[in-house]
Each structure stands twice: as structure tokens, then as C-alpha cells.
Amino acid sequence: MTPRILVRGAVIALGAAGTGLAGCARGPESSLAPHSPQAEVIAGLWWTMFWMGSATYGLVLLALLVAVVRSRKRRKPGTAPPTFLIWAGGVVLPAAVVGVLTVLSFIATREASPAGNPGRGALQIEVVGHKFWWEVRYPDEGIVTANEITIPAGRPVDLVMESADVIHSMWIPRLHGKVDMVPGRITRLQLQADEPGIYPGRCAEYCGTQHAGMAISVEALEPEAYQDWVDDRRSAVAPAAGVAVGQEVFMTTGCAECHAVEGTAARGTLGPDLTHLMSRRTLGAGRVPNNRGFLGGWVVDPQGIKPGNLMPPTALESQQLIDLLDYLETLE
């Protein structure tokens, strides 16, 4: 048996680390593709730590390799234990490395925290975690929506978060680290997107059956586009003509007990507010694309699409369903 062990170990660990980390294209939910000052700081911290860690690991491997080679060359065991090695590698090296790291980590942590960015004039958005979707409220603008947060790019936004049931965790990897939503407490997360774009994320704290199906996305718009977006939401929603039948279905088959639609008698709070349903890109917190087909599928059989979510299936006759969908499609 030979130093081969070490060589192989080193090859596997560092070789793969190099190619994998540096080379691969980054996915849409990669924390190493930062698009905000905070995520930038954290990614920077990671890369520093990666190089320090690799160097440390390399030194440990080197020491082990030399030890093995020496041991192989020996005729018989030596007598004087190399205590200096223990002091050098086990005390001085780690003390130096973690000494530096403690300081770097402290600085980065402060910079990435609200303490480092007293975001004056920040826009406040309230987010409430539900099993397995997100309620999003703009208290100043009077907008209520779900599962998608729209923000102006280049401006700090304060998410003020709580939970309606169990612990969830808000995580938009390209914008910031995660912060838990703890029942009975209010937590805050500061987001700021450098440029317009869609930043997906997901719930990061195990919250039950559909923890995996609890996605969220943040859309950052140019400031003017954002203002338009707000104005659109705020203009009174006049129900389009000809969908009164569908609305009737909505009100009478139970939907209204769980869902709210502004300007109607529907005031339910167990499910997402549907006032702006059709302006969302997805249904069921990122589960499926939002189009008529999936919408119909969702209404009839939500459990088939997102097993374990808290919306029961509704039995509708086909004409009822068509009318309902016609109505839902007017909810912009």
C-alpha cells in the first residue's frame, strides 16, 4: 500500500473541486451567481474561504504524504517523535487560519446583515409563510398577492416576515442568504437586486409534506416599470363582462371560503389571494406554469399536481369548470 491513497484522495477532492466549482455554468438558484451587494459579499467570503481551505487541506495532505514516504523509506521505526509537527500543523497553522477567518467572517457577516445596510427609505413588504405557499403584502401600496414578490431593482427592500403555521425559511440564493419565518416572531430580510430579472428561490426549512413544492420568486423591475406594476394593481378591478356565471361558481362551490378576490365577497384567507392570479407566472407556489390547462387541472385535482397541499379537490361539471376558468382568467 502506497502514497497512492493520498494521491487519489487529493485528485478526487481538489481536482473535482476545481473543475466543478469554477467551471460549471451556474443555475438560476446558485448562491455563487450573486446579483446583489449582500450575496456578493457572501460569495466573496466563500471564495476566500475556498482558497484558504484548499491550501490548508493541501498542507495536511502534504504532511501526510511526506510522513508516508518517510515511513516507507525507514528500515525501522524512529525514536524521536516529531512534536514540532503537531505544534506547527495542529496549533500554529489552524490558529493562524481561523484567526484570519474569524475577522473576515465578522466583517462579511456585518456587511451582509441589516446592521451593515441601514436601508433608509427601504420599501417594506410583508411576507407570511403558509404551508406551502407565500402570502405577500405591500402595506403602503395596499397590494396583496402570493408566491411572487415584485421589487424595484437597485433599491433596498425590507421583507418583514412571519409565519401562519410552522417554521418556513425565505431563501433567494442569488440575492441573499436565508432567514427563517418563526411563528410568534417577526424576522427581517433585506433584499436588493442589482439589475432587473427573475430570481427564483425556495423554502429552506422543512415544513411538512410539500416542503419541496414551496418555491418563490422575486422579480426585479426597472423603477419605472415597477411603478407601472404598482399602479396596475391599484386600479380598481372591474370584473369583465360575461363572466358573472363563472363568478357565481366561484362564490358557491367553496372557493371563496379560502380565497379572497378584491372587490367581491370572497374574503377567504386559507389560500392565496387570487385578485391578481393571472399575472403570476406559476400556480401552486412554482409547481406548474400558469395557463388555462393547468389552472383547470389545479382546480379539479390540486392533489394530483401538488400532493399534500392544503387545497381540496372540487367536483365541478364541465360547463361549471369552463365558466369558472373564464372568470379566473379575468383576474389580472
Binding site: 517523535p81 506547527a88 500543523g89 495542529g90
Partner: peptide, 26 residues
């Protein structure tokens, strides 16, 4: 966090003691 990092020293000693043992051994 800072306290957790101190484990680098305690574990470092353990790791390097083993390496040093190999170092002088056959």
C-alpha cells in the same frame, strides 16, 4: 461562530498527532 472555529485547533492537534506518528513510524 468564533468559538466553533477553535475546534480547528483541537482537531488539528488530533490529526497532526496521527500524521506525526506515521512520520516517525514504519
Amino acid at each position: 461562530g468564533a468559538a466553533s472555529m477553535l475546534f480547528a485547533i483541537t482537531s488539528g492537534i488530533q490529526v497532526f498527532a496521527l500524521i506525526a506518528t506515521v512520520w516517525q513510524g514504519k
